[in-house]
Amino acid sequence: MTSRQNISSDSEKDYLMVDDKKKRRMVSNRESARRSRMRKQNHLDELLTQVAHLQKENNEIVQHIDSTTECYLQVDTDNNVLRAQMMELTDRLQSLNSVLFVLEEFTGFPFDIPEIPDPLMKPWQLPCHSQPIMASANMFQFR
């Protein structure tokens, strides 16, 4: 019977050893799974932070584009007004030159009638008086 007891004792030890290994593996697997979940959660938190940062940055860019577009539209409007004024003044000058030409023909007295410059050909050569150009600091808002 002693040999039976030895066999049963050995098998019990083997069973306890296997059971102990199994328990240690389960604990190790649980710990590994817990660490994996923590890494996954940390990664998700980092991604959410990055999304919030990129959304904020995108909103700032959109606001900058909107303000730049608003400035552009204002400058374009001002430019159109100036073009219309230039056309009106050019028409007036042509009318006055026509009157001077008729007077020159009628009186025989020579008038110095300047040629009307074409501002689209050489705008840098336009005769202009020294007049200050008014501008404000917030006219161009660049960052």
Rank of each mutant, 00 (worst) to 15 (best):
T49H: 11
L47K: 10
D66E: 14
R143F: 12
Q94E: 03
M86K: 13
L82N: 15
L100N: 13
N80K: 14
R4Q: 13
E46T: 09
S98L: 01
N29H: 07
P117E: 00
R39E: 01
A84R: 07
Q50E: 15
T69Q: 06
Y72H: 08
E12A: 01
S130H: 09
I116D: 07
P117A: 00
S3H: 11
W124D: 12
V27L: 06
P123Y: 00
N58H: 12
R4Y: 01
D14H: 12
Q50V: 06
R24H: 08
V102S: 14
S28L: 07
S95G: 14
E104Q: 14
A52L: 06
M139F: 01
C128N: 09
I7G: 12
F140R: 03
P119Q: 09
R143Q: 09
E105P: 03
R92P: 09
P117I: 00
F101P: 06
H43D: 08
H129K: 04
K23F: 10
K56T: 04
D20S: 12
L48A: 10
I116W: 15
L48C: 08
S36C: 05
P110C: 05
T68K: 11
L47F: 04
H43W: 12
P127K: 00
Q50T: 11
R4P: 08
A137V: 04
L100I: 11
